[in-house]
């Protein structure tokens, strides 16, 4: 990757913008990964980086419409994905195979996303400076 020479807009490098991908692969309530990952993304948004979020495998369940956690007494954090746009996080990607295996389609998701093939996902991942997985 040839990121070393470019991207600096001041001398000490504090203005460097890197490409961060947050890779979400866990279902929302069975473990704490999804919620923790979302909080990290929201905090990272304050640092003006180039952030994208990817939902693969069970991570696609995080975006399913119609979640209602009243009866399990846990916080329903699915509405927070709709706030990402206001945090200037507009690049949300979902892998098509992950949806299809789970009997889901783009219409089942609560935010607009770009659905990618595995090949397109490979290209997107290779293009990142940092990939952080949850």
């Amino acid at each position: 990757m040839s990121e070393a020479a470019g991207d600096f807009d001041d001398e000490d490098g504090s203005g460097t913008i890197k490409k961060f991908m947050f890779l979400n692969r866990k279902a929302p309530y069975g473990t704490v990964y999804a919620l923790e990952g979302l909080e990290v993304v929201l905090i990272t948004a304050a640092f003006d980086q180039d952030v994208s979020m990817v939902f693969m495998d069970d991570g696609v369940y995080q975006l399913v419409k119609g979640q209602n956690t009243k009866a399990i007494a846990m916080k329903n954090f699915s509405p927070t994905y709709r706030a990402l746009d206001g945090y200037d996080i507009e690049k949300l990607y979902v892998e098509r195979d992950s949806l299809e295996m789970r009997g889901l389609s783009e219409d089942d998701l609560l935010v607009p996303v770009e659905v990618l093939s595995s090949a397109e996902m490979q290209v997107l991942m290779s293009d990142q400076d940092v990939v952080i997985a949850f």
């Binding site: 279902a27 929302p28 309530y29 369940y61 399913v64 419409k65 119609g66 979640q67 209602n68 956690t69 009243k70 009866a71 399990i72 846990m74 329903n76 699915s78 295996m101 789970r102 009997g103 889901l104």
Partner: peptide, 30 residues
């Protein structure tokens, strides 16, 4: 889940095994 890989596996055994799901967990996950 309907039309999912796992759903097909469950459907295949439903003749011999009675299958239940906990509604609060189903609803939580939408």
């Amino acid at each position: 889940t309907k039309n999912s890989d796992a759903g097909k596996a469950v459907q295949a055994v439903m003749g011999g095994i009675k299958v239940y799901a906990l509604m609060p967990d189903v609803e939580a996950r939408g």
